[in-house]
Design a protein around this nucleic acid. Structure first.
Length: 274
DNA sequence: GGGCAAATAT
DNA sequence: CATATTTGCC
């Protein structure tokens, strides 16, 4: 006598996670292979292109009277529900795109896009090279910063250079300049804290104070470990929640374990209907 | 390319 | 105002 919710949940759990799926930005056939077998190489799809296609798909679904509202709700709840259930740490760069009065919604590189784009292809407007587009101001969310700190910690302090950090963070749209700039500030923060021992972080250190500083950074950590490629799961998961600078170092975020936490977690599908 | 400080920009 | 980005210099 299982009710519908249970059946839906069972169905959702049987679906592949975003981690199992090949990112849309990644060609199914490597260029080398394609050329070797004289196959016409696929067009490279960047995240920007994929996202644009997603927007078009969503706006198409919403705009046209063809769809019933409940249909859209199901798509959305599905995406959010899986995110919560699997505890996916799908980090992505969260960016605002001001020049678009027609749709003031925030554009996010999430698996909302992956879901929505599944039933549509990208059009010509998305075929433009996204490289030439200047990226909007990056927002260093606690999650993004956490990942940054993790990478810096796992690299030695000696290997923690912008380029390497950027690569290991593996975040779409994140540039070396972004990392370099953030690293600069982060180092200043570390320096200030080591100088004034036994003193709570400055109230102005909103972001940094909310993220624990790994011991790997406290000292030169002479352990000669080479850059070990740490595989972060593909991006996703954002929440408006901000760490409380309350001098305690209390913060909530993901704890280096992308998966697990299955049986005990409640799969409350949160509808953020605005 | 990296590091840093100062100037800009949002 | 806080923070991210750009710039110039080493």
């Amino acid at each position: 006598m299982a009710n519908d919710d249970d059946r839906v949940y069972a169905w959702e759990m049987g679906l592949p996670t975003v981690d199992d799926l090949t990112p849309l930005t990644q060609p199914l056939i490597p260029p080398e292979l394609a050329s070797a077998f004289s196959i016409t190489p696929e067009n490279q799809r960047t995240m920007l292109e994929v996202n644009r296609a997603s927007q078009n798909t969503l706006s198409g679904l919403r705009g046209g009277q063809l769809q019933t509202p409940s249909f859209n709700n199901h798509i959305k709840s599905f995406a959010e529900g899986r995110d919560d259930d699997n505890n996916n740490n799908n980090l992505s760069v969260e960016i605002d795109e001001e020049p678009d009065p027609s749709d003031s919604r925030k554009i996010r590189r999430t698996d909302d896009d992956l879901n929505s784009q599944a039933d549509n292809c990208y059009d010509e407007s998305s075929a433009r090279s996204a490289a030439a587009v200047k990226r909007p101001r990056l927002v260093w969310t606690p999650q993004l910063h956490k990942r940054f700190v993790d990478v810096v910690a796992h690299l030695g302090i000696k290997n923690a250079v912008p380029k390497t950090i950027m690569q290991l963070m593996n975040v779409e749209g994140l540039t070396r300049e972004n990392v370099a700039s953030h690293l600069q500030k982060y180092r200043l923060y570390l320096k200030r804290m080591q100088g004034l021992s036994s003193e709570g972080p400055s109230p102005s250190d909103h972001l940094f104070a909310s993220t624990p500083v790994p011991q790997s950074l406290q000292e030169p950590a002479g352990s000669g470990h080479m850059p070990v490629p740490m595989n972060y799961p593909p991006q996703m998961m954002q929440m408006p929640v901000y760490g409380h600078p309350g001098a305690g170092g209390s913060y909530h975020g993901f704890e280096s374990h992308p998966y697990n936490n299955y049986g005990s977690s409640y799969h409350g599908v949160t509808h953020n209907n605005k």
